[in-house]
Amino acid sequence: MEMIIILFSIFVICYIFQCVIDKSHRKKYLNNLKDTRKYLSDAEILSFYKDSNLSEISILELWNEVATNFDIPSGYLRPEDCLAEMGILQIVVDHPKLQALTDIAIEREKELNKSIDLENISTLDDYIKAFAVYLK
């Protein structure tokens, strides 16, 4: 019984330590974005896709979905941003926020009724191009 308490205590301490480091890393990541990037309006975000045949509403919905999931103000994101690096501590392979976005992507894949290779989605742009609705 004593061993279980010790193991549980070690687990709790490691979890708290990981959360503190993760929060610190996320804050540093966000501060770096704020220091190095101009905040984009919706019109400026849409300009990245002006030559595409994608629905503007769909683009903004997906863009904001990623921003919300990673707790990053949407205007600081760029299409080339890597989803796995959005404020996530690199030691953690299966980060809950990345897993949550993967779960959302799987649901979207079902809704769209099309096969999407989720392993090839690494950037915000990949995510949008995979799930945005095309204009008819």
Rank of each mutant, 00 (worst) to 15 (best):
M1D: 13
M1K: 13
M1I: 10
M1P: 14
E2S: 12
I4A: 13
I5C: 13
I5R: 14
F8W: 13
S9D: 09
I10G: 07
I10W: 07
I10F: 09
V12P: 01
I13G: 09
Y15E: 11
Y15L: 15
I16V: 13
Q18S: 12
Q18Y: 15
V20H: 11
V20R: 11
I21C: 08
I21V: 08
K23S: 14
S24A: 12
H25T: 12
R26T: 08
K28G: 07
K28F: 15
Y29Q: 00
Y29T: 02
L30N: 08
N31T: 05
N32Q: 13
N32C: 07
L33V: 00
K34D: 01
K34T: 05
K34V: 10
K34W: 03
T36V: 08
R37A: 01
K38Q: 15
Y39M: 07
S41Y: 00
S41D: 06
D42Q: 10
D42S: 13
E44A: 08
E44F: 01
I45E: 02
I45N: 02
S47M: 08
S47G: 05
F48Q: 04
F48T: 03
Y49M: 04
Y49D: 00
K50Y: 06
D51N: 12
D51L: 06
S52I: 04
N53C: 11
L54I: 03
E56G: 11
I57H: 14
S58I: 01
I59L: 00
L60C: 00
E61L: 05
E61V: 01
E61R: 15
L62F: 00
N64L: 00
N64P: 06
A67M: 03
A67N: 00
N69C: 07
D71T: 09
I72F: 00
S74R: 03
G75M: 02
L77V: 02
L77F: 04
P79Y: 00
M86D: 02
L89H: 08
I91T: 07
I91A: 08
V92G: 06
V93A: 15
D94S: 14
P96H: 05
L98Y: 09
L101C: 01
T102M: 15
T102W: 13
D103Y: 14
D103C: 11
D103V: 11
